[in-house]
């Protein structure tokens, strides 16, 4: 009886390697920081504080209006 149980345990352990790996969907592989954290390099545009999300957004919107909306200049 104990030999049969032992054989069963060995079989269970041996077949455990045949189980399927997890196939659940995982959402993306992003491990980075948010963009508003900045890069720490000397190329960062002046006028905003790295790490401050609202100042980063404000800088981008200002940059878009200044650089891409010439009606602000001529009208």
């Amino acid at each position: 009886m104990s030999a049969r149980i032992g054989l069963l345990a060995v079989l269970v352990l041996a077949l455990a390697a045949c189980t399927e790996p997890s196939q659940e969907l995982h959402s993306g592989t992003n491990t980075g920081k948010p963009a508003y954290a900045g890069t720490g390099s000397n190329f960062v545009a002046p006028g905003w504080t790295p790490g401050d999300k609202s100042s980063w957004l404000r800088e981008l919107n200002l940059r878009a209006q200044r650089g891409q909306n010439e009606y602000n200049k001529v009208n």
């Binding site: 900045g38 890069t39 940059r63």
Partner: peptide, 13 residues
């Protein structure tokens, strides 16, 4: 990574 530098894409600018 221009966005993290507080800049917009180079193509548009």
């Amino acid at each position: 990574n221009r966005l993290a530098e507080g800049k917009l894409p180079a193509c548009a600018e």
